[in-house]
C-alpha cells in the first residue's frame, strides 16, 4: 500500500497514553493506516484511550465450543466405554446416570478451560509459529520500556519521508525514539 522502495519501522516509547495519543492521531491524519500501527502496553488499555480500532476476540465462542466438545468426549468416555466393554454388574444398569453426569460435567469444564486458553494463545500469536508469521511476537529494542511500565508505539511499513515525519513528531513527547 505504501510507495515502492524500502519500508521503515518507527518505534517510540511514552510515559503517558495522552502523549502517544497525539502522535497516533497525527499519524492517522497523515494517511498512515491503523493496521500499520501497533501499540504495546504494560497493562491493558481502555477502549477509547487511543483512536485505533478495537481488537476482536472470539475466545468466548471457542470456549463454548470447547465446552460442548469436552462434554461430548467425557460423555462418550463414561457411557460409551461402559457399553463397549460391558462388565458383569449383577443386574445394575451398565450405564448409570449420576456418574455419567458427574464425568460429563467435569469434562465440559475441562474442555471449556482448555479451549479458552488455546484460543487466547492463538489470538495473541503466542502459539509456536503464529507470532513469527504475523510479525507480532518479534522483539523490539525498546521492549524494556514496556517492561518498565511505559507504552511503546510501533508503526510499520512507512516510506522514508513518513518515517522521518513520525520521528520528528515523537521526539518531544516520547521517552525514546528508535
Amino acid at each position: 500500500m505504501t510507495a515502492a522502495g524500502e519500508r521503515h519501522l518507527v518505534e517510540a516509547a511514552y510515559e503517558r497514553v495522552e502523549d502517544m495519543r497525539a502522535v497516533v492521531e497525527a499519524a492517522l491524519e497523515s494517511g498512515i493506516a491503523a493496521s500499520q500501527i501497533e501499540v504495546r502496553s504494560p497493562a491493558p488499555l481502555e477502549e477509547d484511550e487511543l483512536p485505533l480500532p478495537k481488537p476482536k476476540s472470539r475466545v468466548l465462542l471457542f470456549a463454548l465450543a470447547g465446552a460442548v466438545l469436552g462434554g461430548l468426549t467425557a460423555f462418550g468416555l463414561a457411557a460409551g466405554t461402559a457399553l463397549a466393554y460391558p462388565l458383569p454388574t449383577g443386574g445394575m444398569s451398565i450405564v448409570a446416570g449420576p456418574p455419567v453426569g458427574v464425568v460429563t460435567y467435569e469434562g465440559t469444564a475441562l474442555g471449556l478451560i482448555l479451549m479458552t486458553v488455546l484460543r487466547v494463545l492463538w489470538e495473541g500469536g503466542l502459539l509456536p509459529g503464529r507470532g513469527i508469521r504475523s510479525g507480532r511476537g518479534r522483539a523490539s529494542d525498546l521492549d524494556h520500556h514496556v517492561a518498565n511500565g511505559r507504552l511503546l508505539l510501533r508503526v510499520h511499513g512507512l516510506s522514508e519521508e513518513q518515517a522521518g515525519r513520525l520521528r520528528d513528531s515523537s521526539r518531544t513527547s516520547a521517552v525514546e525514539v528508535g
Partner: peptide, 8 residues
C-alpha cells in the same frame, strides 16, 4: 526469545 515454541 521465542521460548513459546518450546511447548509445542
Amino acid at each position: 526469545e521465542d521460548g513459546g515454541r518450546f511447548g509445542c
